[in-house]
């Protein structure tokens, strides 16, 4: 299972980002979300959304093995074991592996909780095999 996105349906509202940060960190802070929204305005006037495909490339290079599989079959970061080395960041083909030391003491990524899908009103996000 993984998260999918249809960027043409995304309206750039960022509800998914708030829901994501709330689940990952129990905080309201879209800057600490694991989806990547890239607006292209004023032209051509489209939103581009990037999401984790659960490819596992991040986990493969993690020297502390902090990126593990959860019960949903998704890779997640075990915050206690991450040392902020950033090895995972360049490996991510979708730019949704985050290390921002000024915001959090560990790397973060999508753990497939599904809360982003629950708040998306336009059907841009869904979970499937």
């Amino acid at each position: 299972m993984r998260l999918y996105v249809d960027s043409t349906k995304c309206s750039g509202c960022r509800a998914c980002l708030v829901a994501c940060s709330l689940n990952l960190f129990q905080e309201n802070n879209p800057k600490k979300a694991a989806l990547n929204l890239i607006p292209h305005f004023p032209a051509p006037g489209v939103y581009e959304m990037k999401v984790c495909t659960q490819c596992g490339d991040c986990a493969a290079v993690c020297p502390t093995e902090a990126i593990k599989l959860n019960e949903r079959g998704a890779y997640y970061v075990d915050f206690d074991e991450c040392n902020l080395c950033e090895a995972c960041v360049p490996e991510c083909p979708e730019d949704v592996m985050y290390v921002r030391a000024e915001l959090a003491n560990a790397a973060w990524k999508c753990n497939l909780c599904g809360d982003c899908v629950a708040v998306c009103g336009t059907g841009a996000l869904w979970i499937a095999d």
Binding site: S11, G45, V46, G121
Partner: peptide, 26 residues
Amino acid sequence: VITDKGCFGCPCPCGKYSHMKRYGTY
């Protein structure tokens, strides 16, 4: 209209982003 454009946190975006071909503008 080319894109629906939402304000923060909105599940029913009323914003419509448009391209006026005659004027080449958005």
